[in-house]
């Protein structure tokens, strides 16, 4: 399973490196969202700084939808899904691999967004390890849930409109817990921030487990 996961992740990352969709579309989109939020909230630094953690996570959520759609689109070419199924790769491996590829893109997005809120919104992280832990756990959960729903909507003509409706409510706990943990990381309230990791951790674990268990039956549906 793990070897298969590595293979699939390697394939997806290689496609991303060659097509540069993540670099030229997802990353600029994430930055654009930050700038637009800035316009919406006005130039006052106090308001921007207070809203920054929430805006950061909203931008991450939107990027997750984009990255997931891209991840599904890779598999929607003529006969691609059949090829993947016929290759004898464990469905759980496919799931983990695709989730890992999305996670790598999300990490890149978050590095840029993190720099973005520091530069644009003048945010200083007091306890950076808390923000980092929240980001890592959230990334695992977001990519697992995203890829799972991506597979669910694969092959549907209405995929682009359906996927956000399905994914965004599911990942709402990540938005809540992530923004609270980051607020705590900004203000230095470690104890209250760390308790939010108790939501992000189980979320990631649950969706990894559900994905490993249910990706097989979903792949049969194509």
């Amino acid at each position: 399973m793990w070897r298969d996961a590595l293979l699939v992740a390697g394939k997806d990352v290689r496609i991303e490196l060659r097509s540069r969709v993540a670099l030229w579309q997802v990353l600029p989109f994430a930055v654009l969202v930050l700038v637009l939020f800035g316009f919406a909230l006005g130039p006052g630094p106090a308001a921007l700084r207070a809203a920054a953690p929430g805006l950061y996570w909203l931008a991450v959520l939107f990027s997750t939808v984009l990255a997931t759609q891209r991840s599904v689109a890779i598999e929607s070419g003529e006969g691609t899904r059949d090829g993947l199924r016929l290759s004898g790769i464990d469905p759980a491996g496919v799931f983990l691999g695709k989730a890992a590829a999305v996670a790598i893109q999300l990490i890149a997005v978050q590095v840029v967004l993190g720099a973005g809120i520091v530069v644009l919104f003048d945010v200083h992280l007091q306890t950076w390890w808390l923000a980092l832990a929240a980001s890592v756990l959230a990334t695992v959960g977001l990519s697992a849930a995203g890829v799972l729903y991506g597979a669910l909507s694969a092959g549907l003509r209405v995929r682009e409109t359906l996927l956000p409706l399905l994914v965004l409510p599911i990942v709402a706990p990540v938005l809540i817990a992530g923004s609270r943990a980051w607020s705590a990381a900004v203000s230095g309230a470690v104890a209250s921030g760390a308790s939010w990791l108790k939501i992000l951790g189980p979320f990631a674990a649950v969706y990894l487990a559900v994905g490993i268990a249910l990706y097989g039956p979903l792949q049969e549906t194509a």
């Binding site: 729903y149 559900v210 979903l218 549906t221």
Partner: peptide
């Protein structure tokens, strides 16, 4: 199958 998975998730 799709709907069953969606409901469970």
């Amino acid at each position: 199958r799709r709907c069953a998975v969606a409901a469970l998730v």
